[in-house]
Design a protein around this nucleic acid. Sequence first.
DNA 1: TATTGTTATACTCTATAACTATA
DNA 2: TATAGTTATAGAGTATAACAATA
Lengths: 152, 152
Amino acid sequence: MTKEPVLQFTDALVRLAHLVQQVFGEVSREHDLTPQQAQLLCLLVGGSVGMSELTRSLHLEKSSLTGLVDRAEKRGLVVRTRDSRDRRACRIELTCDGARIAVRAHNGVTERLEALAGELPQEHRDVLASAIGGILAEHTSQTGRVWSPSES
Amino acid sequence: MTKEPVLQFTDALVRLAHLVQQVFGEVSREHDLTPQQAQLLCLLVGGSVGMSELTRSLHLEKSSLTGLVDRAEKRGLVVRTRDSRDRRACRIELTCDGARIAVRAHNGVTERLEALAGELPQEHRDVLASAIGGILAEHTSQTGRVWSPSES
DNA sequence: TATTGTTATACTCTATAACTATA
DNA sequence: TATAGTTATAGAGTATAACAATA
């Protein structure tokens, strides 16, 4: 019986984003990761990705990404592998350790969000997911993957 | 006639959060602000806030906030004012310059999100906003304001 | 020439720990 | 003692510019 204040549509989006970001921060900390490292790891759960594609997905300059990958590699979370078809390029992939942590963090975020939406009826969830899907549709083609899909 | 892929509910939330964050980043840059400064300014549009309350809203340690406010103050965006009732405390408020930029950034984010949701029928927006309102309800009481509400 | 990625540099952001001042 | 906030320090994140290697 909580009285919910009426929210403007855009305000709702912004505040939801803050909440998700907070969840991400909490889960990251639980796994001794920075939020950026967690984001990188969760993205790589779906398989190896090239540096250029990562800059587009994460909206980072290439030099920023070099640093992020350097630190993740130094921690043993990811490795750079040479691209067989282009000797300039490399692909980033999870180590065994990195994959283990990535899956846990990914699940952690999913579970926490599920818990937050606990009382929300499935019907509303579907509307939410499909509406968001529509909003995301065109942008996804530009930015590529930003979060490996959960298993059904 | 875009074919939208089916999204898991939590995946939709995460990807939406990324999109909002991206919008925030773009708008911040347009106004020569860091995303963190923009977030602070957008929060202060509603009036002055104390440091302690800001740490809760922004999920920052107090020392991190000191630095953020220091830099914003150095740029002439905000000022510290002494709290009349507690001589340890201070309140942060926007300068005239800061308020001007804050409102523009706030509007910029709102407009860009509106544009993204352009084709979404009002009915779906309402469902989205109310569903999100439900998710946020309990958390808002803990964290306080994180985004000054748009005017109706 | 264009693209892929790194290096150098300068800020900004953030947390931990120790501190001052006031309640 | 507890709370509000700052300072000191260290590391992470980020962008710009200049660079090397390959396409």
